[in-house]
């Protein structure tokens, strides 16, 4: 495999890792605060539809982005109500949210656009276009460094850079601020946080809201950056891959970056079976590459390669003693 092919695969890995990274960090906030969220997929899908729909109607991708985040936040609120206020089962609520998004997006898309559950294609200002970083063209001819800078680092949409910046931001927020300390504490021992006179409810709701915003970004990137329209079920399991990445990363922001890049790389490979075949000299079924993130997660969960220990109070509704 030559350098250019490798660069192409890395380039598409970065693109494919971006929605995973947003969703993975979204799950990180929620689960660190003790709220399990298997509804990442649904929030992503809802955001993808509403961002594409509003971008198509208004002609502005930023209006679309806001609508996408709004839709995702609304579903987060449902999850918050069910799992924080009414102390319901967080897993069941997540399942419900996934189906709610899968059904509603097609229903509304059909009603608004009459294209069998799709939105019209987006173009111009209605989608996120690629940004060329400064000097990209000037350095292109320098061997190795030039193409890496010009093709791999430059030339993505703004949301890709935002996603990568969200990693240090998340790390700082969680591990270097008072809010972060409290948020992590509420996922480990909510009673202690409550005893200190801090509202468990408010902390958990803010974590769920941050999760909603990040899922909104993830879905918006999917429909207006990676692709230029919404199609039925377009998140196609990415929310669950993000969940897998979160476990793979053991609920840590920097590890999440590497896990998402790895899973993005696997997705990029399954798009290029010719390159895989050239390197391995055997025909690797594309389905194996598709299934690999899930298989890896099961292996990690089984504790054969380092143990993944979730936040201790995860999944448990907090009941104040009377």
């Amino acid at each position: 495999m030559d350098f250019l092919t490798l660069l192409q695969i890395f380039d598409s890995s970065v693109r494919l890792a971006t929605p995973l990274l947003f969703a993975c960090l979204a799950g990180l906030f929620s689960e660190r605060a003790g709220i399990f969220d298997i509804g990442l997929e649904g929030k992503m899908l809802a955001a993808a539809f509403f961002s594409a729909a509003f971008a198509a109607i208004s002609g502005s991708v930023w209006v679309g982005l806001l609508a996408g985040i709004g839709a995702s936040l609304a579903l987060s609120l449902v999850h918050g109500l069910a799992s924080i206020t009414f102390r319901g089962n967080q897993l069941i609520s997540g399942v419900a949210i996934n189906f709610l998004a899968a059904g509603l997006t097609v229903l509304i898309a059909q009603s608004w656009f009459q294209q069998g559950g799709r939105t019209p294609s987006l173009s111009g200002n209605a989608r996120f276009n690629e940004i060329t970083l400064p000097f990209a063209d000037a350095v292109r001819d320098i061997p190795y460094f030039g193409p890496i800078y010009a093709d791999l680092i430059s030339g993505h949409s703004i949301l890709v850079y935002v996603a990568f910046l969200t990693v240090p931001l998340t790390w700082y927020l969680l591990f270097r601020t008072r809010f972060g300390l409290r948020l992590r504490a509420v996922g480990e021992n909510p009673a202690a946080v409550d005893t200190a006179g801090i509202s468990v409810l408010r902390l958990r709701y803010s974590a769920v809201a941050i999760c909603g915003v990040l899922c909104g970004l993830s879905g918006a990137y999917l429909a207006t950056g990676l692709q230029a329209l919404f199609v039925k079920d377009m998140s196609s399991g990415r929310g669950f891959i993000a969940l897998a990445a979160l476990i793979f990363a053991k609920w840590r922001p920097w590890y999440a970056l590497w896990a998402c890049l790895l899973f993005g790389f696997l997705q990029a490979l399954s798009l290029r079976p010719d390159a895989v075949e050239a390197v391995t000299q055997v025909k690797v079924p594309g389905q194996l590459l598709d299934a690999l993130p899930y298989i890896l997660t099961v292996v990690i969960l089984a504790g054969f390669v380092g143990k993944a220990i979730p936040p201790r109070a995860g999944g448990e509704p907090y009941v104040k003693e009377r």
């Binding site: 609520s93 399942v95 059904g103 059909q110």
Partner: peptide, 25 residues
Amino acid sequence: TNIPRELIVVVQALVILFTGALDNM
């Protein structure tokens, strides 16, 4: 009609939500 069959997915989601997660409500 112009209602796609995905309506059933919505009903299914709501049934799961109300009988499962929002039971206490």
